[in-house]
Each structure stands twice: as C-alpha cells, then as structure tokens.
Design a protein around this nucleic acid. Sequence first.
DNA 1: GCGTGACGTCGAAGCGCTTCGACGGGCGAA
DNA 2: TTCGCCCGTCGAAGCGCTTCGACGTCACGC
Lengths: 336, 336
Amino acid sequence: MVKITDVARHAGVSPSTVSYALSGKRPISEETRRRVEEAIRELGYRPHAGARALASSRSNVLALVIPLRAGIHVPVVMRFAVSVVTTARRYDHDVLLLTQEEGDDGLRRVADTALVDALIVMDVQLHDPRLPLLRSLERPSVMIGFPADSAGLTCIDLDFKAAGEVCVEHLARLGHRVVALVGSPPEVYVRRTAFAQRVVQGFTAAADRSGLASSVHPCEASPAAARLVAEQLLREQPALTGVVVHNEPLLEPLIDAFEQLGLRVPGDLSVTAICPDELAESVRVPVTSVALPSAEVGEQAVQLLMKKLGGDAVPEATLLPPRMTERASTAPRTTS
Amino acid sequence: MVKITDVARHAGVSPSTVSYALSGKRPISEETRRRVEEAIRELGYRPHAGARALASSRSNVLALVIPLRAGIHVPVVMRFAVSVVTTARRYDHDVLLLTQEEGDDGLRRVADTALVDALIVMDVQLHDPRLPLLRSLERPSVMIGFPADSAGLTCIDLDFKAAGEVCVEHLARLGHRVVALVGSPPEVYVRRTAFAQRVVQGFTAAADRSGLASSVHPCEASPAAARLVAEQLLREQPALTGVVVHNEPLLEPLIDAFEQLGLRVPGDLSVTAICPDELAESVRVPVTSVALPSAEVGEQAVQLLMKKLGGDAVPEATLLPPRMTERASTAPRTTS
DNA sequence: GCGTGACGTCGAAGCGCTTCGACGGGCGAA
DNA sequence: TTCGCCCGTCGAAGCGCTTCGACGTCACGC
C-alpha cells in the first residue's frame, strides 16, 4: 500500500505538505502542488479512509435509514436512495445503508462509533420513537417527513398542504364546482405522518377560497372500498365532477369504479392525485397528479446535512413546492 | 468521547486486555471479562470505527453496487439490498451503497481507500466492463449473475437452466405434450447476462427428455408483440397447451392476448413463468412460477464474502435451486 | 524438583493520516 | 534600513485502536 509518506518522498516534500495540497487547508505553491499531484498519480496513491477518519474525526460517510414497512412504495424509496447517494458523492461523501429494522440501536451504533458523520432518516412517523435519540445524538440528522413535534430537528418533505391546494385549484380552473377528496385509510390519519392531515387542510382551504362544494372521505385501500366510496360520492354529491385522490393503491380501482358506475374519466369526472409520477402514468387513464418528488427530497436532504456539517444553520422545516403534471384524467367541466 | 483507555482504567486493566476481552483473540479470565464488560456498560463505551479500521485493516463494511438501468425490477433490487444489509449485520458488518453509475472509479475508490473490506456487484453483464477491475482488486468480491468468463471470480445466481427445466417438467407432469418458451427480447440474449440462454437450454433439454414438442420465441416486451407472438404460436403449434414465459413485462399482456384469442388460462392453456413472486401474484390470473429468490441470493452473497474474508475457499459458481410455486395458471391438460 | 506449556495480562509499537506550532524568506511600510 | 507580516513548508504530536512479544504464574508430567 502506498502511503502519504511515499508520496511525500517522491515529491520531495513533507507529508504534511502533501496533506495540505490535498485538502487545500493551507496555501501551497503552484509548483509544489503540481509535483505532489504528479507523485500521487505516478504512485496511484489513495488516502486510507480509516486513518483519515481517525485523524480528522470525519468519516465522510452518511447513514441512510430506509423503511421496510409494507405499504411503502418501493420505487419511491429507491429513487430517493439513489438520489441521496448521487448527491452525497458530489460532496465527496459515501452512504451507509441501514434498515428501519435496526432501530435505535443501529442509529446509535453508527453515530457513536463515528462510522458516519450524519444521518438521514426516512419515513418519519407522527410520534416516531427515534425522535428523542435523534435529538440527543451528537451528529446532525435530517428527517424525511414531519413528526408531530419537530422542534430541534431538521425535516424536509413535499408541501402536502400546498399539494392539496394545487389539486383543487386545478379543478377549479377547469370549471369544476363540486369536488371530493378520497384520502388514506382512517388509521393513517392517526398513526402516521402528518402529511395526510395536511392534504386535507390544503384541499379544504382551497375549496373554500374558490367557493367550491367539497367533502373529504378517508378510505380503505381495497377495490371493494373503492366501489363503496364511489357510490357514496355519487349519492351524496350528485353534481360531483372533480375528485382528488390521495391514496395510491386506490387510484386505479377508484377510476374503474367510477367508470363502472357510468362516469367517464375525464368526460364526466376529472380526477387528480397526489402520488408518484410512475403510478400516475401507469394507470389506464394517465392521471393528472402532483408528484412525490423523491429525487429532489433526497438531494435537498443531503444538502441540508452538508450545511449542518459545515456548521451552518438550516431551517427546521423545508417544504418542497408541489409540481403538477397534467395528464389525461382532467378536463374542463362540460356544462351539459 | 470515552475511549479504550478510559475503560481500561475503570476496569483496572490495560487497554490491550480490554481489546482482547472485546475481540476474544486471546484468552481472558472470566473475572476480568466481567469487569471489562461492566466498565464498558457504565461508561457507554463504543470503539471508534476509524481507529479500529486503521489498526486492524478491517473496516467491517461491505460495498453493494446496485443497478440503475431501466428495465430492472426495482422491488427485486430492494429486497436484495435489504437482505444483504440484514445478513451483513449478522456478521457485524455494515453496507455501503454504491450506484452502478459510479462505475469502475467508485469500486476502485472504496476498495483502495480501504473504506470497505469486500464488494457485492449486482446485475453483472455477459461482458461486464468491471470484470478486469474486480479480478485485479486486492479485495474479495461476489457478483450476482454470471459473466461469459467467470474464471477467478465468485458468482451466484438462480440456476436458470434448472428453472427452465422445472417449468417444463411441471407442464409435462400435468400432461401437456406441446410447449413453447416465450423469452426475452433478442438483444437480451446477446448483450446481457447469460441467464436468458440458460433458461432456453434447460427448457429445451427438459422438453426433449420428456418427449415434448417445443419451440422457443424471443419476444419484445410490448403488448403488441405479445399479441403477435400469441397468434404465431397458435398458428405454428395448434396443439399447444403449455407456455413458459421468461419476460416479465410480457407476462400479463401475453395472457390477455391468449384469452382474447379464445384460449382460457388455465382451461385451454397452462402458463408458467420465471419471475419475481410479486409479479406472478399480481397478474389477473396468478401465475405458477419459479421465483427470483432475491433475499436468498443476497444472504448467500454475504456469506460467501464472509468466507472469503475469513480466508476460506469458496466455489466460483453458486447456483440456487429453483423453487416453483403453483398458482392458478396451470392445470392438467384436458383431453377433449 | 524442574522443565514445559498454557494461560492471562501488560507495555509498547505502530496503523496512515491531519493539524498545530514554528520557522525561514520575501515584501511592503515606516 | 529595519520591523513585522504573510506565505509556504516542515516536524512532531497525536487520533483510538490492535497486535506482537514478553513475562509471571500455575499445573502437569517425568
């Protein structure tokens, strides 16, 4: 193994000079830098990660905790992970993969052994058991999603409230006057992240602002439930022409149910959703949707972490603006 | 930060004794071990990963390179990754996530800087550009999939030949006499891993052994192509009653095409597939299939690596036996 | 009774890097 | 001309751990 002293000897300088030439933490003359770089190239020198970590107390590794729970949309997690890795590399960092399963112990282990410099935690629950630990850890972390109390933590996610608003506004702009939100199963509103509630808030606020009649329907994620909620909607709101769906597995069954009830999408009914683009595109009728911007979240999460590692202050909450893509499931209201 | 000298002092022993008590590399008296363990607990001691890596030249980290190419089934990759992480933890190792995108440079970097002790490379191509590098690296690696020339490397994958055989044998057992294999697009047979050819080999060999009439049809992954190949099959082999599909995106469209041509599955036609269980289960008619055992591959890949790290010899090729799950798409031939 | 090991422990020497303080030389200001 | 300062470089001291050789003790066999 070629080490820094070899490079130093070969370049006719001291090891510390090589180190400074590499890190740029002290000024080095152009000439010396050249010689060092050449020596490095000729010898194929690679600094030893462990030695570096020991001496500098920086491992240049980030931990990423991925969720395992069923019901998580795998491609979204994957895209997020890839985006984290890619962005981390831009900042000369690597990514250590942890599973939710490891829990607190895993987090504590990688943090306390200085294996990683910082942590990214996905799929944060409303009352996530890891919160106290993350607060007490001496290493910075960023959470994807918002817990009930995010004080002292750094969180990032799609702005679900705005996403709900955008959906309604889009429908309003198309002339729809009566809209409904089909949401996640009731337990999600209680147990999980705050995002479900925030969609409702946005949806309702925007509907009120635009003077639309609106209703909200939490719904189980089964085709049978889709059928039921579709029937119920038509019964209770016969003038309904716009639907916002925030329940991924329900999206396709719900559209099927409406069509079986004689409503054409988008002819009679416009449907928008908050879901991964992938899903929106794969439905029989491609759905106008607000995307879950996994890549963007991943990138920004890393950037927040880098700022924190650099000692800079970062906002506790970062909300990503929703971006809507129009597809085939929405159309102007036909005033027949 | 509490370090090993603190523990040593607290326990009234020398640092080396603490180290040996931890690693078990030298005998330590019961009494001393107890005292050391207690000191560790009381002080909350965690060995510094970098220092450990430097002193022992072992980082206890594995690199996992995941594919990004389109056409890869994401949940399979994910399950594999999770299985690698989980298994690695059982051996007290962590996993560093790399993307294909980083290429040779990424592999060389983590290997040469001693960031990782060993590497797992997914999605190995027939003529994978990384092969020379992996051979030359001083660190052990395991590849998922078989390149054209695997000499000097350690590879593991499903035994695709046996998988092809199992499918045919299942059909033969059900009384089918005329079978066809619908395979991957032609370019896959050239460009990609060897698995496509090996399915064909197994399929053909088993059909010959059982005295079945058989044919092989590479096929593009589009619904239109599905329709075409279905028509062609019925034209060329009117007595066809058994089909093996080794082309994931084609599975559902192909079944649709057959049914539109008036063949009921499994009434008139039995279908088996080689694909992720997930896919097989999600088709309208759940398909009898040989699974892609991602979790098992991940686990065994790690175990192979651990053996290599321990200095043990491992087989160059590990082929996982196929496991078939019977679902609703196969039935005995009706001799009407 | 003494040599021989095995056992249990210690001390010290690194592992390869970063970083701090120091220092010589050159330059601008006084 | 001299003082002070900054630039560029060096040497040395660790960072926290593992590991090697050494040493004392005890039990055993002859």
